[in-house]
Simulated scan of single mutants.
Amino acid sequence: MNLSKKRYIQGFGIAVVVLGMVRCAWPKVASSPDGRGGSPAAASAVAALDEADDTMAVKSFSVESDTAALRQSRFYHPDGQLVKNKIFSVPHFGNTFPDQNDVQLLSAKRWGVGPVANRADAEARKQELVYVGSNPYFYVDKLRNSVPYLVPRASVLLQDIGRNFFDSLQIKGIPLHKIIVTSVLRSKEDVAKLRGRNQNATENSCHLYGTTFDVCYNRYKTVQTADHPRREVRNDSLKWVLSEVLRDLRQANRCWIKYEVKQGCFHITVR
């Protein structure tokens, strides 16, 4: 059937009138599924705006949560000032660090190298050992009865002790000090000489395996320069802080520790 231009215009006009009457009679017919009027494009735009509002709400909540967390932080006061945490130490050094040689020896044999005969033998075993020298986190004392080597596992432990000690001093508002390492790997020759002067020194020492080191608790290396001297801190205060650090690492099963009274050190073997 041929549709003339006149009839097409008349039909289009009738359809527009009918749709207008339907919209007036039943307004909901022209509404979107969520109850909002408009075309699909308009509905998409509205949905995008709603999503943006939700995103802003989440970000606002995150900022508020972060602010609340800052107010409850153990490191900062609500005004942003650093909290100076108290020094608690440990209840009793001997009870907190009771690990005798027989306990430490099991870990020493598991993780360590075979006992070295002398210093030349130690130098030849560098593929199994790493050099231990003074660095930003600890100071190695002049070694008379040992050589500056440890197995990698023990070296990492020593590094963590020094770094954790720094962190603890920082949050307690105490000037930075380095721990001092007094003994590391000992050869059989070193142990024999030591036993000649010290009858309490054991022949089957954990130091033979490169897993063990001593950290003194009555001396520390102050971190300072000539232009920026540090205030003095009692060694007892530093010892209390160090004991907290060592207790935490021992409880985390990182090491065995013996509190040595006569030698003035913590005798530490990696686990």
Rank of each mutant, 00 (worst) to 15 (best):
M1K: 02
Y8M: 14
I9Y: 04
I14W: 07
V16W: 07
V18R: 02
G20H: 01
G20S: 11
M21Y: 03
V22W: 09
C24Y: 03
A25P: 03
W26S: 14
P33K: 06
D34W: 04
G35A: 13
A42W: 06
A45F: 10
A47S: 08
L49C: 09
D54T: 08
M56C: 09
A57D: 15
V58I: 11
F61M: 08
F61D: 08
F61V: 02
S65C: 06
D66Y: 02
A68W: 02
L70T: 05
S73G: 14
D79F: 01
G80L: 04
Q81L: 09
N85Y: 00
K86I: 05
V90L: 11
H92Q: 11
F93M: 14
F93D: 06
G94C: 07
L106S: 10
R110T: 11
W111S: 10
W111V: 05
V113W: 00
G114A: 13
V116I: 09
V116G: 05
A117I: 04
A117L: 12
D121W: 06
A122F: 01
R125L: 10
Q127Y: 08
E128N: 13
Y139Q: 12
D141Y: 08
L143R: 03
Y149L: 13
Y149W: 09
P152I: 02
A154E: 01
S155H: 01
L158A: 10
Q159Y: 09
D160V: 04
G162Q: 02
R163N: 06
N164T: 05
D167P: 05
D167S: 14
H177W: 03
I180H: 04
V181R: 03
L185A: 12
S187W: 00
V191G: 06
A192G: 10
K193I: 03
Q199V: 07
Y209L: 08
T212Y: 00
T212N: 12
D214Y: 00
A226N: 15
A226S: 14
D227A: 15
H228F: 15
P229D: 10
P229Y: 05
R230C: 15
E232D: 12
E232P: 02
E244M: 11
L246K: 05
D248G: 11
D248A: 15
N253K: 15
N253C: 09
N253I: 01
R254H: 12
E260C: 11
C265T: 00
I268L: 09
I268W: 00
T269S: 14
V270C: 07
R271H: 14
